[in-house]
Design a protein around this nucleic acid. Structure first.
Lengths: 191, 191
DNA sequence: GAGAAACTAGACCGGCTGGTCTAGAGCGGT
DNA sequence: ACCGCTCTAGACCAGCCGGTCTAGTTTCTC
């Protein structure tokens, strides 16, 4: 997932390479923690390319990165739910994917959007993040039946995931993530 | 909680004022999103004061801010648990406090430490955040009996709280936080 | 193969960053 | 009155920031 492999850059257009590099860096250091020059270096492209593909600069690129992962996770959820899996099982699967993500990056990256939240107040970037969360939430909600209780459970699913990621990243151990998500999945599957 | 009221600065020493201003700003924009000049302006102090009290500069100040809120929440948890309240009830109470916090700041602030996570890799700041999380986790764990299952539940408690805060902040509605924490509390109180 | 369009390349800029440093204000002790 | 200590005050700096712009190269189209 998401591994549009930065090591073989020629396989990706420069626009995609920019988005991939930006996403990876933003997930590691947050919006303000990443300099444009960092992204350019990671994508091995000059400044001109960035402002050609993303005239809106850093923020537009960040929005594209958020949209990219939003789509990716959303599609993944859709395909899992299409197999009639129980919501708890899908949540656990996603969590395990996040774990391998964390481990692969030596706990520097935050798999979903947690870190991006450090965004400029009322901006379009905030909106993009919000949209992504809404879509993921909706996937769980409808899979759980669309009732009021389903909404509650969907909230718990996402919250335990995002929160667990944050705990795991700080303690450099996927343990805490697995524990909290497992428990949440258990509860969600009930009834 | 934490309201060492920036509006009446003369009641606080300048060191405390710096910590309070820094905490509030970091919670709103993350470590990298805040400039030293912002903090000084909020605390109404010149640069000299900062580097007198915190020779280590921005990072040392951030660590102090993290320590401050870590202590505050920890003490709060200790006093609540001392009344023999059930863990779920304490969690809910904390969540409601976070809600009023979010609302008071018009959803700009992140009550706990979620945003600070966007910190420089292997630094002392990361360590401070990690310590805070460990302490809070331990409070819940021992209150829940110290068993293996208690550890799991403690993880869920904190994860649902941090994750719920993130969801709520983005959607500008405390609803999602309340829902996820309520469900988590329910589960935690079982048995 | 001519010409337009898409893209790369990187020098350049003003503003802001975190941090240093010197000067002095305020105050307690003697 | 004097001194020494704590703290305030803010000018100053080198380096980095995001962003602009012009010049070149490649690629597509006819």
């Amino acid at each position: 997932m998401t591994n549009h492999d930065l090591e073989t850059p020629t396989l990706m257009g420069s626009k995609e390479r920019l988005v991939a590099a930006a996403l990876s860096l933003f997930q590691a250091k947050g919006y303000h923690g990443v300099a444009i020059s960092d992204i350019l270096e990671a994508a091995d492209l000059p400044k001109g390319s960035l402002y050609h593909h993303f005239p809106g600069g850093k923020e537009e690129l960040a929005i594209a990165a958020v949209g990219f992962i939003a789509d990716e996770v959303d599609a993944r959820l859709a395909s899992e739910f299409a197999k009639n899996k129980r919501a708890g099982a899908v949540l656990l699967e996603l969590a395990h994917e996040c774990v391998s993500w964390l481990q692969r990056s030596d706990y520097t990256q935050t798999p979903l959007l947690g870190l991006l939240a450090a965004s400029p107040g009322e901006s379009a970037l905030t909106q993009a993040i919000c949209d992504a969360q809404k879509r993921w939430l909706a996937r769980f909600e409808t899979a759980l039946g669309g009732t009021e209780a389903a909404h509650d459970k969907a909230c718990l699913a996402l919250a335990s995931l995002e929160g667990g990621i944050s705990l795991a990243r700080m303690s450099r151990s996927s343990d805490l993530l697995i524990r909290s998500v497992t428990l949440a999945a258990l509860h969600i599957n009930q009834r």
